[in-house]
Design a protein around this nucleic acid. Structure first.
Lengths: 203, 203
DNA sequence: GAAAACATGTAACCGGTTACATGATTCT
DNA sequence: AGAATCATGTAACCGGTTACATGTTTTC
């Protein structure tokens, strides 16, 4: 159900179309919550039916039109309620660590490749998140700037600080994952390249 | 589809019933991959149909019976193939960080409570994982011991090392999450308890 | 004129969750 | 005798993914 609140979060800034929101899910919010367009459009309809949003047909060019949604008071209240409530944490389900636990079943090169893939994956994320933090620090994030413009001055510091705090957490996590995978590479080397204990016995 | 491979991983040690496997999912593998019994039983049936397992009716007490599954050669091959292949990483979907990004919408106490809940959650996990590592180090893990007994001597070191490596990664992650939430608490205090800038303006 | 971007959906499927349902055995 | 544990499922639902489908507008 977090998709709904991610959408509400964005719509507290300004009215948007499904496509606008989808674009945001490919960049800003997409860094903490991903959603494909095929999930966004129907969810917006449901949210409208539930009174959290109001949609308005807007013409676009000659024949085209688009539907712009703005958040209702009920929507703001729902978002606030969600923000004040507690989350329940999902049970662990982590394919990378599941595989790591049985890495003795993989060929040494395949095992190394898993660790390298883990590093590549998290390095990419790290890059994105670093860029985001820099954007926030330089005041170069369009979405955040529009949000800040809407918010009373005393709140601006908080708004920016929590965004930065979020990305810093993600960065620390990615760095940890990279460090772990590097330890994995070292471990694989240690376990498989042992020249002196020349035990030729093979299974 | 990881459930299937988690089940195969366990069944490489010895034949088990659905209930045995379910118990393991509450303790050992459950730490990296959770699954409820209602998912395990039908999956075992499907795996049998796919030739990865063979089930055998075993009588239990007077009238009772249970179905014990053992892995087939095809099952071992499928597991090995999965272990040698690469994983694709799911897109980020992280409710805790999503909420953190908009924490200015929560009451200060609610914001603190989120951070405390984050700390509590990860402290619990940390506890479990530390216990697991200790168990591995002391050779007190029944499942791992049975696995080690089945494996050729040269492999034992690897088998235990990768388990420990996995848990150490989870521990480092949990510690990082706790550190992040503590930084969050400090940030909330800093942002909300600012006595000198007595800006009485409220929205 | 073609390609990229804007715009909005439906449908089939899949993995996972929650609730329901039942009964046997073993332990105290 | 009753509780805990062993044992095995079904069914409804839900959130998310992938594929399909279509058309407009803007940019090059």
């Amino acid at each position: 159900m977090s998709l709904r609140y991610a959408l509400l979060a964005l719509l507290t800034v300004e009215p948007m179309t499904g496509y606008d929101l989808y674009k945001e899910f490919e960049s800003s919010v997409g860094h903490v919550w991903h959603a494909p367009d095929s999930q966004i459009y129907p969810e917006l309809r449901r949210m409208e039916k539930d009174g959290l949003l109001e949609g308005e047909e807007i013409s676009w060019g000659q024949r085209g039109k688009k539907r712009q949604y703005h958040i209702t008071e009920a929507g703001v209240a729902a978002f606030r309620t969600w923000m004040n409530g507690t989350l329940d944490y999902a049970r662990v389900r982590d394919p990378a660590h599941l595989k790591a636990a049985y890495l003795e079943w993989a060929e040494p090169d395949a095992a190394r490749e898993q660790m390298l893939a883990h590093i590549r994956h998290h390095t990419e994320l790290l890059q994105q998140w670093h860029d985001k933090v820099r954007e926030i620090e330089e005041g170069a994030s369009p979405m955040l700037n529009r949000r800040l413009a809407k918010v009373p001055p005393e709140q601006r510091r908080k708004t920016a600080a929590f965004k930065k705090f979020t990305y810093e957490g993600l960065i620390a996590r990615a760095e940890q994952e990279i460090a772990w995978a590097n330890r994995g590479l070292a471990l694989i080397d240690e376990l498989y390249a042992e020249p002196e204990t020349a035990d030729a016995g093979k299974s």
